[in-house]
Nucleic acid binder design. Sequence first.
DNA 1: GATGGTCATAGGACGCCCAT
DNA 2: ATGGGCGTCCTATGACCATC
Length: 765
Amino acid sequence: SKMPQRMKSASNKNKAEIKEEASTSSVLAGNSGDDDPNVAEVVLSNKGGPKLIHHGYMYTLHKKQPYNIRWRCVRRTMYCRGSIITTTSCTKPRVRMEHNHKPDFAAAQVARKRYLALGKPSVLTNVEGNTVKSMNVSQRMLHKENDIPEEQKDRRPKTRATARKKNTLLQRKYDRRGIKNQGHSTARTNTTASTAGRLVLVACKDTVKLTTRRLLQEQQRDRNCHAQVTTSSKEDIVESIRLEDVAMKQEPEDEEDCYLETVEMPALSPSSSTNRHAGVAHRVRSHARSLRAMTNPSAVWAHFDLCANDPLRAQCRICGAVVVRGGANPRQCGTTNLHRHLRVHHGGRLIGSRYHVLQSPSQTNSTSKTIRIAAQSLVRSHIRNIAPAPISQQQQQQQQRQPKTLVLKTIPLKVKQVAPTTIKMPPRQTSQGVPHNIVHQQPTEVCLRWNSYHSNMQNSFPSLLDSEQFVDVTLACEGRSLKCHKMILSACSDYLADLLRENPCQHPIILMKDLKFWEVEALVKFMYRGEVNVAHDKLPQLLNAAEALQVKGLAGPNPSSQNPKPPLLIPQSKPVVSQPVPRTASETKEKPSTSGVSIPSSPKRAQKRQHSESIEPKPFTKIRLQRPVTPTSPTTTVKMEPLDIPLSPTEMFPENNEDSSTPSNFDKLMSLHEEDDPGGNETTDGEREIHFCEMPEPPDINEDQMEFVPTDFLEQEQDIVEETETTSNKDCKEESREDYSFVEFEIGEGDRIEKEQYSKEKKPV
DNA sequence: GATGGTCATAGGACGCCCAT
DNA sequence: ATGGGCGTCCTATGACCATC
């Protein structure tokens, strides 16, 4: 109301500018305000909400307008009125109200580092109409709607409404008693008297002071700036409390109020008003807690079940342990111990409004002792204090002697793995004196490491495969299909990576002609899980398939092979002699072309060259991948052609994976394809023929130059300190070269590796 | 020393009220 | 209708003490 006229005009001017800016702005997430003064830095707050950093001040999101966003200073509890307005894309920040404090660059840096430690996730999303949706809001909505039990869903609106009604009722009563809003300082009094949840009664010698906790804090911080309500007599306060009690008891249908009726309150006595006030304060506090717990349950309840016979205890859904919630009073719905249990026993971390448990139950049970994540207090202390703890010279020397990264797992895990690779276990090294999961890299920086990151990823990938979430590529084989993720396939197979990279289709369909479906399925499982179970007699066949697809971990470099050349890419017109799938039999009848020459080049290079020249992105492209007849001389036929059929993957496989893999769908697909290309060797107008040129042979790799990389999935769960390996390299190669044997590693105590070889077949070294 | 119990506090999201 | 100001509600977390 005291806004100067110039500010008003500026506001109108800003509005026009902001509107203009909003119309042209794009998504901004996590911009750095250091680069552009017109762009404020947006990071993620502790609770997952957006936080703005501008010139050393931090702001939290206040209101989202259609064309701008209002932020206010995080120190508003210190009566800072600092506020700022940005566009919907968080550009052009304009300070509206000045701060009453200096900028806190250290706190801003902490928030920035924490945000970066989270992997710089997207903070704001610009959706239609330039409406900015906060991730936290959506998360909270999801949490509230999905995680809350049905009974609580039904109760919540009622409780909220009841609480509001209660506050309104008290407001009216206190208004009748003459407490009115009289400005900035007295406005607080009004609210203080109207709300019961935050009342703190301070009994003095002659008067009773009604104030809030915040105001008590204020008194401690600044004696000159606080607001107190000093009533004329104790009777007024006692009467107020009585009215409050009556108001609370007027609604017996409310669960919390029924709760309160059972509270044993200290006996009312005119001579013991202090005790009474203390009792009421406790009662009010208890009521507030009950209300909070009922209306918005903590995220920990996604991992706990309240014991039916004992509300004081909750059973962990992960390990089954019964955890005492804390407090002898069931009305105090404490979750501190539940948080601590998740944090200590399961590495739980609260991200956003959801608890992420990093260790699966099986892992927890398989180890003799659970992994203890470094104490959060330790981490937090480092987060809050920008300056790291001073490092002694001894520690610095120790760090210099340990140039490699420490993967901190103090307890050896039992890892079951099937892989033809060899694990090199250097002697265990620990960083004494250095916090476990904090590695000091520079004197002014700390490295935050999520110790269970890899295990979390390992647990997440199979679920993504099973649920077919975010799939973007389909592998078709033998009339069945398997939906996968490009990212995973690319990460596990260089061949597929190049194939997919050169075909920027949104959802390509790769037809694997000569592969068996079980091979593809097993390889995909291996890529996602890091392990796969396969019958012993089928192992060579699977390894051949892996070799054709260059699946990492299964198809390692094999210098002993007679034909070390990778699979080849040849034109479709080339003679294709393979084990044709019945549905593609017509394609195999195609006339052999004499022009096709076996090209001893890498399929990646050939494909890259050809595609970069001739292939344009098409919405859908089907890729036929044909494995060579003999594993020793792999020749892979790849034909790429635009699919004119307006089929989307969902249309093609409209149902779930099982249904979509029915032969009928596949037949439909193949018939449509064969109509388009009946012979397979004729180039139609809409078909793009790919020509592959000959590439020089890759240089022979010396055996000494080859390095066998340990399986990624193995090194994640072990107490491995990576180190430049100079010793035992030969042994490792020997083991890994032992014909891709079916090896199971079991990491036991003392990092002992037990290798059991199931395969007796050996290839010549 | 580990775990449980209790309490207090900081921080964040949101709603309400009032002035323009 | 919009913007500014303020309070409420809620959760995470730490401190301290007790118990095993």
